[in-house]
């Protein structure tokens, strides 16, 4: 019983263990302030994780989310400040554009059958370029309206609002994965696209939607990021995709499908990434060591998780019926 329980909640145990070790090392760790800080620092990644997780679940990957978040911020600032579209129309327009971009990526990947890794890598580049072009490489300060600024600066119950946004998105994503037909179909497509297709599931459609979802959460994250940093900037959000993918993979969702995927796991992965950074700070480890430790932790976590090994899932590339 205990081993089974342990197996099921392995990640949570590891997280608690990490917290325990950190609280012994530093008494400052288990303070509300510090924990709130950690959660705040990961909230952007957490929001992105909630949508981006569907591309690995359906045996793809999306590396463009960092650039897309940055582009969304820049677009939003342009719409609101330069064009004076008003808050809500600007937000909606930004999200619509981001989702369209995700949709196009999804179409290219599924209909032309090209590897998602290279397409989204290229997308990362060109989206960054567009963001630079639109913003002319400058920071666009955002000070108004106060309702928007409150998202990044405000607090509820003493916790910053972005944390709540992250929690809401994680919960929604969890419901999507566990309680809806889309979630069921996404896991099935990841497990075996051919069987899925023969069972009447439109695998291409499911995969395309995954890229729309990741674009959608990237846009939300970009907007929240704007509000937190009170500016839009093409460099803001660059590189976030690596943290997002690290969190997803640490959380036990393999790249390349295989019928696995857990949103809560990815959340735990996100918190782990936050803990590692926070712990290193608390231990006064020079920041230059952080990437080394993070890299090694990821490699060991991967090495320990059998689900993540190659060959556990049917490859997307063989999906052609």
């Amino acid at each position: 019983m205990i081993p089974k329980l342990f197996h099921k909640y392995k990640l949570l145990f590891i997280l608690i263990l990490m917290a325990a070790v950190l609280s012994i090392i530093s008494p400052r760790f288990l303070t509300k302030e510090n924990l709130s800080n950690v959660l705040w620092s990961i909230s952007i990644v957490g929001i992105m994780v909630s949508g981006t997780i569907y591309s690995p679940i359906t045996s793809g990957v999306d590396l463009s989310v960092g650039s897309l978040a940055a582009l969304s911020g820049v677009l939003f600032a342009k719409f609101m400040i330069t064009f004076g579209f008003g808050l809500i129309p600007s937000i909606l327009l930004t999200i619509a554009i981001a989702c369209t971009i995700g949709f196009i990526h999804g179409l290219i990947i599924t209909r032309i059958n090209v590897p998602p890794l290279i397409i989204t890598m290229a997308a990362k580049t060109y989206l960054f370029g567009i963001a630079m072009l639109i913003s002319k490489g400058e920071m666009i300060p955002i000070m108004e309206p106060s309702s928007f600024m409150a998202i990044g600066g405000g607090k509820i119950l003493g916790f910053p609002i972005p944390i709540f946004i992250m929690v809401i998105f994680i919960l929604l994503s969890h419901i999507l994965l566990k309680k809806t037909a889309y979630g069921r179909k996404a896991l099935a497509v990841g497990a075996n696209p051919v069987t899925a297709e023969l069972s009447g599931i439109d695998a291409m459609q499911i995969q395309t939607i995954a890229y729309i979802l990741s674009a959608f959460t990237a846009a939300i994250a970009g907007l929240v990021l704007c509000s937190i940093s009170q500016l839009a900037y093409a460099l803001l959000g660059q590189g976030l995709e690596l943290e997002v993918i690290t969190a997803i993979v640490l959380g036990g969702t393999p790249l390349g499908g295989g019928g696995f995927g857990t949103v809560f796991g990815a959340l735990i992965g996100t918190v782990m990434v936050g803990f590692i950074g926070n712990g290193l700070n608390l231990m006064n480890v020079p920041s230059s060591f952080h990437p080394i430790v993070t890299g090694l932790v990821i490699i060991s976590a991967l090495a320990l998780n059998e689900n993540l090994r190659m060959g556990s899932g049917t490859k997307l590339k063989k999906a052609k019926l």
């Binding site: 099935a188 497990a191 075996n192 051919v194 069987t195 023969l198 696995f260 899932g313 049917t314």
Partner: peptide, 9 residues
């Protein structure tokens, strides 16, 4: 195995 079932599900 390849087309009938989802082995991991």
């Amino acid at each position: 195995r390849q087309q009938g079932v989802f082995m991991q599900l």
